[in-house]
Design a protein around this nucleic acid. Structure first.
Lengths: 96, 96
DNA sequence: CAGCATCCCCGATGATACTG
DNA sequence: CAGTATCATCGGGGATGCTG
């Protein structure tokens, strides 16, 4: 997730760099999500008025409070995905 | 969320009861989601072969391990939603 | 570089009706 | 009671192209 990508970066990250850190996300969704997160006050956006412009994103203090609960979830997923997969196979009734 | 509704219930809950505990969710989505959760091994389903049938749902042990991280997130939301709302108003550029 | 603007499509979900 | 089947919609998101 974006918040994790921004957290990993530590400080500010530029748009393109963020895209590399969030593999699979399209430019459109990246831009859109960043706008939402900025709107919510979770992400700060800083524009350097050069040509071409350089835009830097970072987590706000509020955004950083989200890291822990989010990581808890991610860790749950990592720890239990194997178990879940095994259970799915055991059922062997491929749902849908 | 369903997991929370099941957690609240403590033990087994029947379909209709679950629907009451998860307001806003349609019968279709409830049934579908329950099947997925069962498939993943997070939810156990027990059918009493009476007429009409009585189906009982409950969290498995695996399902219960998900409660904590999920609640952490929910609590984050409850604690910070006010802040987020305030920030949105301060921006006053109604996004979209 | 960092986005918008468009067009387009498919899948997720709701509404409704039927059943063992 | 506890679903399933069918139909219709609607909007999220991808692809592409343009621009300050």
């Amino acid at each position: 997730m974006l918040v994790r990508a921004l957290a990993n970066a530590g400080g500010e990250v530029r748009f393109a760099e963020l895209q590399r850190r969030a593999p699979g996300i399209s430019r459109k969704m990246l831009a859109q999500t960043l706008r939402e997160l900025e709107y919510d006050g979770l992400v700060a956006r800083r524009v350097e008025p050069t040509i071409p412009p350089a835009v830097h994103y970072s987590l706000t203090e509020l955004g950083r409070t989200l890291i822990a609960p989010l990581d808890a979830l991610r860790e749950w997923a990592e720890t239990h995905m194997v178990t879940v997969d095994e259970h799915r196979k055991r059922i062997s009734a491929p749902l849908v």
